[in-house]
Computed example of a mutant assay.
Amino acid sequence: MGARTAWPAGSFMSLDEPLRATMIDMVFPLEGHSLPRDASPALRAALQREMPWLDQAPLAGIHPLKLVPGTDAEALLSQRTRLLLRLPRVRFDDAAGLTGRTLQLGGHAVTLGQPHARELLPHRTLYAYAVAAEGDDEIDFMQAMNRELQALEVRSQLICGKRQQHAWPTGALTTFSLMLHGLTASDSLRLQTLGLGRHRLLGCGIFVPHKSAAAVGE
């Protein structure tokens, strides 16, 4: 058995048996001033126009944008705001063609910079800002999540967080934030690859590593 290396707390990676996901996150710097406060539908539509193959890309997702509160109608872009796309790694070169493109999102313009790839790493604790629910009831939502995890043969502790109501042009949608804790390395990568629930291109069901369960309600 070879020597192991130190990785971030909560991760499983070692030099002996590195795990490599079939998906990656593409990280694009953004240049702009503001966006609609809930930009997910407009962002999905703009990216679908630029990348017609997006709907057919298995498990592709668009991470929720981290914006600065502005007015009731719009939010502000900070210098740290990034567009993250979760894509099959074989689509990296195709998506890199977005470099320099300007997207129109509800009357707001945002320009994409040169992207870089971010590997998915297996962590014991994963967090999704929003997971789509079939209704407004938290108990029903948790039961549905447990059924999905059982179907994936994933064992985890679940912590349900903030409920949000979205009045999107595509229809009303309820989401909950969700944390999964106590995952094995393979289960962690499987969940980051597959996600949970529907509407991945609206930012739902996309899991990222999290340090602890303290901020699940945020």
Rank of each mutant, 00 (worst) to 15 (best):
Q56Y: 01
A46D: 12
P64R: 10
S11C: 10
I24Y: 03
G61K: 05
G10K: 02
E31N: 12
G10S: 04
P18K: 08
L47K: 05
D55A: 11
T22F: 04
L43C: 01
W7D: 02
S14G: 13
G61N: 06
E50G: 00
M26R: 09
L30Y: 08
L59M: 09
E31C: 05
S11L: 02
S11Y: 04
M23G: 03
S11E: 09
L47R: 05
P58L: 04
D25E: 13
F28H: 05
A45G: 01
Q48H: 09
P58D: 06
R44L: 03
I24E: 13
S34V: 01
F28D: 01
F28R: 07
E17Q: 15
A6S: 10
P8D: 11
A57S: 11
P29K: 12
S11F: 03
R37H: 12
A60P: 03
D55R: 13
A46F: 11
P8E: 13
M51E: 07
A21R: 11
R37I: 14
I62Y: 10
T22A: 15
L15T: 14
L65G: 02
S11R: 03
L54C: 05
M51N: 02
L15V: 09
G61L: 10
D38K: 10
T22I: 07
A46M: 13
W53T: 01
Q48V: 12
R20V: 15
P36Q: 11
P41R: 09
R49V: 11
A45H: 11
D55I: 02
A46E: 12
P36C: 04
K66W: 02
P8I: 08
L35F: 12
W7S: 11
M26W: 12
P64Y: 10
A45F: 09
S40R: 09
S34E: 15
L15P: 00
T22D: 15
E31P: 00
F12W: 14
L65C: 03
G10R: 02
P58Y: 05
L54M: 14
A6T: 13
S14R: 15
A9C: 04
H63C: 10
Q48F: 02
D25F: 05
D38I: 09
P18R: 10
S14L: 07
A57Y: 01
S40C: 01
W53Y: 00
L35N: 11
E17T: 14
K66Q: 13
P29F: 13
F12G: 02
L47M: 05
Q48S: 10
E17L: 14
A60R: 06
D38G: 00
P8Y: 05
G61V: 08
T22E: 15
S40N: 05
L67S: 05
P64C: 06
A57D: 00
P36W: 13
P58E: 11
L35D: 12
